[in-house]
Simulated assay, not measured.
Amino acid sequence: MKTKSLLFFLCFVILFFTSSFSEFRAQNANKFVVVLDAGHGGHDPGKPTQYGFKEKDVALKIVLKIGEELEKNPSIKVIYTRKTDVFVTLRGRAKIANEADADLFVSIHCNAHNSQAYGTETYVVGVANTQRNFDVAKQENEVILLEDDYEKHYDGFNPNAPESLIGLTLMQEDYIDYSILLAGMIENNFSGKLHRKSRGVKQASLWVMHNTYMPSVLIETGFITNKSEGAYLNSNKGQNEISNAIRDAILEYKKSLDLNVGENLGLTSTIKKEEAQEYNGVEFKVQIAASSKKIEPKSYNFKGLENVSREFLGSLYKYYYGSTSDYNKIKVLHSEAKSKGYASSFIVAFKNGERVQLDDVLKTTSN
């Protein structure tokens, strides 16, 4: 009798935890995942200042405040690259974001200069490296030199050499429009809501973002080397205002994606009724993901989507949904991909097996 009771109890426990785990997975399956990255940490304090402010501490406090606010939204899952004063490698930060299959990567920093420069800047990965942008990229990338065996892990990358920066743009090129959209919202909040000086959205070759396969931004929340702005960044008031401005931008960005999904779904029936818009010799596809992992292009791996193909390019596997020379048809497939949860998916074009700019294709006359 005791044996039967014990077996019954064990079965109940297993069933309880199995159902609880299944419910947990279901609740988190469609959440919008944001990775918050507090720059520097541990034996890397960031750039020193004469006023005693520490970038690693300011960045962490702002990140924790942003995360605390975002976690109040049941549709958002927040992941941190660090929650304490520890050193995390640049490649480790990117790995956390990629393994989480995040929708956004947001890295928080403070700027530094040998003058009393002030103001905010938000960076996306790009080749538009002015001398000032290169200086910022050099400062942020130099943390690599603090890592053991960095030559082995970063393929000979030299943060002090401009030529090393060119290749860093390739991994993020597919997400640049989304990254710029979020960056613009952040800077607009800094200038519009907080009335701070915005130095704008800029492009630079920053290693921490180049290896992530999702929209990514690096926010320079102000100059910690400026006496007045440094004190503001170091204050509870400043950190609350900055974190709220960034939180609002992330929520606004997510809302814009959600609205786009709804609009596209509403247009589906109209698009289907349109005549075919064929482009001879052109193959349109919807890019739904990019990953360092090799995943079988089966429907069960891609939320039920059929006709998924895979291509290895550079150091990433890219995954596409559909294939057609009809631009109206690919727009329908794009809507379907978004309805399945691929909010950051986008249309790409190929000609003779080579990737070409979509805008260039659409400028030509369809046949």
Rank of each mutant, 00 (worst) to 15 (best):
A26E: 13
M214Q: 03
S299W: 08
A231M: 07
E263R: 15
N328G: 05
K31C: 08
A59R: 03
L305W: 00
L259E: 13
V34E: 05
S5I: 12
S164E: 08
S309T: 15
K363G: 07
N236E: 15
E241Y: 00
Y175S: 01
S256G: 09
S335V: 07
I330C: 02
S115C: 00
A249L: 08
E274S: 10
T169Q: 13
P162M: 11
C110T: 14
D258V: 06
V136E: 04
A349T: 00
Y317L: 07
R93D: 08
N111G: 05
K331W: 04
Y319W: 04
F17T: 14
A26M: 12
E23A: 14
T169G: 09
K65R: 13
K138D: 02
A38E: 00
G341H: 05
G156W: 10
N260M: 11
K227H: 07
E336A: 06
G42I: 03
K152C: 05
S366R: 10
F87N: 01
F21M: 10
D101M: 13
L305P: 02
L170Q: 11
H195K: 14
A290D: 01
F9P: 01
Q287D: 06
E229G: 02
N73G: 03
N30G: 12
A137R: 05
P45C: 07
L267H: 10
N129T: 09
L15G: 11
N160T: 09
F134A: 10
L64T: 07
G222V: 01
V106P: 00
N280Q: 14
R355V: 11
E354Q: 14
K294T: 00
P162R: 13
G52Q: 07
T84P: 07
D85L: 00
N234V: 04
S309N: 11
V88L: 04
K197A: 05
K77S: 12
F87W: 03
C11N: 11
L313P: 06
L15R: 05
L145D: 07
I186R: 01
S256I: 08
L6S: 10
N30Q: 10
H153E: 07
E23F: 13
K351I: 14
S339N: 09
I180K: 13
K331M: 09
R199Q: 12
A128H: 13
H210A: 15
S205L: 05
D148V: 10
D155F: 14
G262A: 11
K273T: 14
E336W: 06
V332R: 00
T3W: 13
P48Y: 03
S20M: 11
Y279I: 01
K2R: 12
S228A: 13
K197L: 14
R93T: 08
D326G: 07
S309A: 11
N133P: 02
L70V: 04
D44R: 02
